[in-house]
Design a binder for these strands. Sequence first.
DNA 1: ATTTACAATATGA
DNA 2: TCATATTGTAAAT
Length: 159
Amino acid sequence: MKLAIPTPDGEFIARYSEHGLSQLSFPGDCRTMADDSIAPANVEEWHAATIAALKEILAGRTPTALPPLDLTRGTDFQRQVWEVLRKIGPGHTKSYGEVAAAIGNPEATRAVGAACGANPVPPIIPCHRVLAAKGKLGGFSGTKGWKEKLLAREGVHLF
DNA sequence: ATTTACAATATGA
DNA sequence: TCATATTGTAAAT
């Protein structure tokens, strides 16, 4: 089930499985896969929640309510990473190394990067708040410009 | 089953 | 500045 989300910044693509939101893509993202899944019963409700949350994020705020996420593709390690990311307050950032330390594997910085890349819902899990060691931008799924833009809207000043 | 490549980082040349 | 070792995953062989 694939639905578009029109925003002032372009058209995001949300994908739903029977368990919840399974993927969210930036405008023009080629990462979306084929749409083979069935239509969940509550998809309209979930989609409304997704839109609301996304608008909050684009406005630089933390969403108060999120749709159920389908994280079946996530491993334990990835879930731990994502959990840490959601604890980062608005306007704050962490480095990949700090996130790694927070899960108890201070040397798995690279693995943290991989986990962020595997994140199915880029804007909702605030992977854009994860920077490289010295406030450098590092990489991002899609364009780096998005990472900058999202951070700027949250009031994060980049060094 | 083994190798390679990542959105990293610290270290050594 | 460049090469390397390190970690967890996924994708390719």
